[in-house]
């Protein structure tokens, strides 16, 4: 059964963006892609999203800054951080700024990404 969730992907790497967006669209989800961190908050203001998949290293504005602003503006969209930063301090900072989960991209398969997105988009 198609999933009618709307997902915002903030990811500057084209391959990763294509792969995740394609896999989620195959599941029937609506996906909006943003490659520039400076455009994330604008995108969040335009549409209602069920979930934000957020990279931390982005041009324009990095993921930590985006999380800070979301917290300040009380934007309630749940955030799953997908990054290749793996130090404990990065995880702690992201979780403290309100991320629901913190995933290291290189440790996940695309199937696992789809699975966690479905889980959090539903809830």
């Amino acid at each position: 059964m198609p999933n009618s969730s709307r997902i915002l992907i903030a990811e500057d790497n084209e391959f990763l963006r294509m792969a995740v967006a394609g896999a989620l669209e195959d599941e029937g989800m609506e996906v909006v892609r943003v490659a520039d961190g400076a455009k994330v908050l604008g995108a969040l203001a335009k549409h209602d999203f069920d979930l934000l998949l957020l990279d931390l290293i982005l041009p324009g504005k990095n993921g930590f800054e985006i999380l800070k602003e979301m917290k300040k503006k009380k934007i309630k969209v749940p955030v799953l951080v997908f990054t290749n930063l793996s130090q404990k301090k990065d995880r702690e900072e992201a979780m403290e700024l309100g991320a629901r989960e913190f995933y290291v991209k290189s440790n996940l398969s695309i199937d696992e990404v789809v699975r966690v997105v479905k889980k959090y988009a539903k809830s």
Binding site: N13, M18, A19, T83, I110
Partner: peptide, 17 residues
Amino acid sequence: SHELRTPLSGVRWLLEA
């Protein structure tokens, strides 16, 4: 971490997709 893993993750996810 970021510069090594990002292209590797990209290749992995595209192939898996």
